[in-house]
Design a protein around this nucleic acid. Structure first.
Lengths: 250, 250
DNA sequence: CGACTAATTGAGTCGCTTCAATAAGCGTGG
DNA sequence: CCACGCTTATTGAAGCGACTCAATTAGTCG
């Protein structure tokens, strides 16, 4: 009730926070793990972090490095990737708005995190996040559910990498992308028929465990079969979702 | 102090529990997620479940089925697997004593769980476990850490499935097995040089995304190179761990 | 010991990769 | 707005690694 007051007494601090805190304007506050928190707690956590823009190609965390940061994705798309010593790369995850990045309670990051398109993340020091999480079981609960979902997703991807043909891989990838873009895009659609690819051909190959040429050939053959359209090198239109689903083979 | 009393008053129940509860004799109680709990809470959770033997080949949970159960592995080795509609199988995880099985807070199981060797698990109804976990943040915290570790492991496996050659896959597999058997085996060793394979050749192929013939050829060639010995169908001796590590290629 | 199953080995094929050349996007500057 | 040059993607041809199919051998258990 005294918004102009700038003292740091508890009452006025709460007041200020709820009046001006960036979390209140955050577009993912209801979907990110923060949604588990009451506004006052969310503000307390938010005060530990800061919003950062990450241009396409910029790497936020390096594989094997000490994992000092965690983050929430606000906008954009980022990849999680690992490599062999001789440079072969595998993308092991793709994260979208409201997804969580990082390894709380752990020392080292097992994979790099790199922006695939210009992105914005809400960055938090890991130590502060760990402390906060320990004091807020609701937050850990939500994080657990997310980790379990990610684990299921990773395991489905293992079936693709271990057992599917090139055609099945590309079809599966396009369908998954269509679904994840739809659900991260706030809109109510379960899937998009027309969208921009956040990954270039090499990155798609790195997700699917294929080469760039094989991905290209598969895309061309899907186009020739009338299943998809490729209006530009980064755009995609799904013409026949049923057939694409059948080709995904699971 | 009145152990023969069989009334259900709180005091006597606690007494009975701490005197006779199977959890107190559980060989994995200090390593499983239960270790997060005080003895009295552990007993309360233990009372919800029961110990069950699972003979080799028996499937505990089926892919796509309602996930009504969770469990802790007490003894043995089990596989988590998924299949395509036309029957191609991929093993997406292998669990050892003290590991947790199941999908808390979820409806459907995304993969089957099948014993690779005769095993014993501590089985709990999922609903009871979920309720209990919600009331015990320490338990959820430990579960979260396990899920995050599993996620890292799954992602490292994605690099293998997407980018490694048959030789590298087999070498990586034997090394991982050697490490996991050692750490689940209570002994202080970080790795075993001689052990029984809980998987047959087809199952190894299903873990590695290869065929049985390719696995067999790779094993033979490792034997010919003096890297390993194969005293029986199901036993392995690592002769040259350094070379095997180099061949694993990461 | 004998029968059955699991594993190994061999020969040939196929699908994906590799290497190389061409074409298409796309941003830039005239 | 179009031409230019660079990057990214596509297409082609040849090679190779893993797969398939088939035959043989080695374990394992009654």
């Amino acid at each position: 009730m005294v918004p102009e007051l700038s003292s740091s007494s508890p009452a006025s601090r709460d007041q200020r926070a709820s009046a001006t805190h960036h979390c209140d304007a955050c577009v993912v506050r209801n979907r990110a793990i923060c949604a588990a928190l009451e506004p006052e707690d969310r503000h307390a956590l938010g005060r530990e972090g800061r919003i950062q823009t990450v241009p396409r190609g910029r790497t936020l965390v390096w594989e094997g490095e000490d994992a000092m940061l965690v983050a929430n994705v606000i906008e954009g798309v980022l990849k999680l990737s690992t490599s062999t010593s001789d440079g072969r790369e595998q993308i092991v995850g793709v994260v979208y708005p409201s997804d969580f990045i990082g390894r709380p309670f752990g020392e080292r990051s097992q994979h790099s995190v790199t922006a695939l398109v210009d992105s914005r993340v809400c960055l938090l020091p890991r130590a502060a996040f760990d402390r906060f999480a320990h004091e807020h079981p609701e937050l850990e609960h939500r994080l657990l559910n997310r980790a379990l979902d990610e684990l299921d997703r990773a395991r489905r991807w293992m079936l693709l990498l271990g057992r599917k043909s090139a055609t099945e891989r590309v079809a599966s990838f396009l369908l998954e992308l269509s679904h994840r873009l739809a659900e991260s895009g706030c809109a109510g659609d379960v899937a998009l028929d027309s969208f921009e690819l956040p990954l270039d051909r090499q990155q798609i190959a790195d997700v699917l465990g294929l080469t760039i040429e094989t991905v290209s050939r598969q895309m061309s053959s899907l186009r020739a079969a009338g299943v998809i359209e490729l209006p530009g090198r980064r755009s995609l239109h799904i013409l026949d979702r049923a057939r694409l689903t059948a080709l995904a083979g699971d």
